[in-house]
Design a protein around this nucleic acid. Structure first.
Lengths: 244, 244
DNA sequence: CGGCAACTTGAAATAATTCAAAAGTAGTGG
DNA sequence: CCACTACTTTTGAATTATTTCAAGTTGCCG
């Protein structure tokens, strides 16, 4: 670490595997310096999951972590009698996994085809020890997830089915296209979740989801290009309907 | 910082105000060294809130943080039409406040008389910069809160009223007396929340809470020493009833 | 002891579920 | 390209859990 100039040149060698990576800047990797990025990239492997693949199982050792490169991941909880609830949805470039705990307390399942950049626990721990900025970044994501979870506690506890479905459509729209936060109308997207999963997320039944989507369509707030393709005709009316 | 011996002696002077403090070891202060503890203690003030006092308001600047020394704090969300949902309960020695965000997205209200050790944002930020262990400790609490929030997502989304009330009683029992996690029977405690707040937490109505408590009593799982004092007669049956 | 708030109880109304069946959609192979 | 199957979604009707509304009862604090 003597010659500043050469060091700079050397450090600008961002690993090839990272150069066009979704998570490189927005994800946790954004806080790593080049040296740390090289260390990490040499210990990662890209893993592809098919839609419906189980990525993490309940009680599984938290031996690996990952960054989501593409796709949507469902986090679900299961009751002994089979009742199920989605307790989180994750999108690229979210960090995936529960740090500092031996075993997982939930399931992670691919809701679409998913690609992640995976690395072992020891690598995470080593990097955290070296880089407080990394723990800070993870802490921020955890805080954001907590804020989100609390928004959903309100929705599950106090909103009716119609409001829940409207809220869900807004959530998906804003996550698939972060630009879409504003009231730009006539925005369309493909739902990453089937009716059953939507119901699972909202704590209601698929039949109820279907009926509420029908209502939203009938009142001209949305339209269906196909079963899975939602067209938002009137964003502010949808926000109104979501009661938030 | 020259003479090691004197420094040690000096450093063993834990601030008087911290010496008998609930949060000193279990809370975030547990990760601070003596020097940092002195720095912090010189910038804190103990604040007492009465039951029902609003401690943090929606959209309020996050200018102060605190450690709960005693009492129970409700975190609530409010909809424009007045519907309300408790999204978290905090007990001593929890850290209170939302770091790294300008404004609060929820209300914090004293659910009992509450005492906190409060300090300004700048002090937190200064200490975090100096001590990665502090951020780590905060990160851990946030992760625990997220785990809890997700447990409640499952409860709100998929449990019926009877199961919700049973789950709630178990939650309170284990937080008021951490020793009570085991199946020791005939344990009694005073509910820190009124029926209305319990309903608010569980996403149901007070009348429904009342009816479910009645059911639990009728089936011999609990007894009421008074309206607010619950006696758990059969912990395993209560766990059964909570469906978790 | 009085008065107000918290809690309980009952009966009617309602939102969502359950069950059943029909309609739509996608994928496969002849 | 159509037929076939499997799966997802929609729709309808009956049932159920919870809410709502209204009235009582209890308990607590001054």
């Amino acid at each position: 670490m003597a010659d500043g100039e050469r060091l700079d040149i050397h450090n600008s060698k961002i690993p090839l595997v990272c150069q066009s990576c979704e998570a490189r800047h927005r994800g946790v990797c954004g806080v790593l310096n080049t040296e740390q990025l090289i260390f990490l990239s040499e210990r990662t492997s890209k893993i592809d999951y098919k839609n419906k693949d189980e990525m993490i199982s309940y009680n599984q050792d938290n031996s690996h972590y990952g960054n989501i490169l593409s796709g949507v991941v469902k986090l679900t909880k299961l009751m002994v009698d089979g009742r199920q609830q989605i307790v989180g949805l994750q999108f690229a470039p979210d960090f995936l996994g529960r740090p500092f705990k031996a075993k997982s307390t939930l399931f992670a399942e691919a809701a679409t085809d998913v690609r992640i950049c995976s690395f072992p626990r020891s690598v995470l721990e080593h990097l955290i020890k070296e880089s407080p900025a990394l723990e800070h970044r993870l802490h921020e994501q955890t805080l954001d997830e907590l804020d989100e979870a609390r928004d959903w506690l309100l929705a599950l506890g106090r909103k009716d089915a119609y409001e829940k479905v409207a809220s869900f459509l807004l959530l998906i729209a804003s996550n698939l296209d972060p630009e879409h936060s504003g009231p730009s109308n006539n925005y369309s997207f493909k739902l990453p979740l089937k009716r059953f999963d939507i119901a699972d997320f909202l704590g209601i039944r698929t039949e109820t989801v279907s009926r509420q989507i029908h209502k939203l369509k009938k009142s001209g707030i949305i339209d269906l290009a196909s079963n899975q393709e939602i067209v938002i005709l009137n964003t502010s009316a949808l926000q109104e309907a979501s009661a938030s």
